[in-house]
């Protein structure tokens, strides 16, 4: 078993611990561990930029969650789960596994399929070389739009009074 498998199996373990833990604080710490492990995985795969972005974003969200809920004095014990949810999940899992079994033969051939397609399209590619990272302006514009929507949305939700006449 190489290191990648160990890192990934530890991260799945951390996720399962986060899901089943009885105290929310433990769950938050487990998800934090998960994020750090995934960052280590990205370092090993030499994709430093995406790993760093992922770590920064997710840790800041976890920090926000922890701070807000500790400040509000929320009681952290939770117990039990929804029965209907478990049934739905079981059904979904069975279908997913069946589908994965069917396509697993094809997935192993991804590399050969991709190289075939790439060679047939080599003539359509321009000669210009793009930079190391893709910058698609329209995508960035819409990400900016969605963050603007989040800012206005959070301001909307957090305001004191919603209706004019109600208290």
């Amino acid at each position: 078993m190489n290191t990648i498998d160990i890192i990934l199996s530890l991260s799945v373990l951390a996720a399962i611990v986060a899901v089943e833990s009885k105290r929310i604080l433990h769950a938050i710490f487990s998800v934090g561990t998960l994020c750090v492990l995934i960052f280590v995985f990205h370092i090993k795969e030499h994709a430093l930029v995406s790993g760093a972005i992922q770590l920064a974003v997710e840790l800041s969200i976890l920090f926000t969650v922890a701070r807000i809920f500790i400040n509000k004095g929320v009681k952290f014990i939770e117990s039990g789960g929804l029965v209907l949810g478990r049934v739905i999940f079981l059904f979904f899992l069975v279908t997913f596994l069946a589908a994965a079994f069917v396509v697993s033969g094809e997935l192993l051939d991804i590399n050969s399929v991709l190289s075939q397609i790439m060679s047939s399209f080599a003539s359509k590619l321009d000669a210009q070389k793009t930079s190391a990272h893709l910058f698609r302006a329209f995508d960035m514009l819409f990400i900016l739009i969605s963050f603007f929507a989040v800012i206005v949305g959070v301001m909307t939700v957090m305001r004191k009074k919603g209706h004019e006449d109600k208290k």
């Binding site: 799945v12 938050i28 998800v31 789960g81 929804l82 949810g85 979904f92």
Partner: peptide
């Protein structure tokens, strides 16, 4: 695992953690 968390847990914070996972 994340989907399982979203579907079956009752505490809202857990559900949000499930989205993150």
């Amino acid at each position: 695992t994340g989907i399982y968390c979203i579907l079956t847990k009752r505490n809202l914070v857990k559900i949000i953690l499930g989205i993150t996972i």
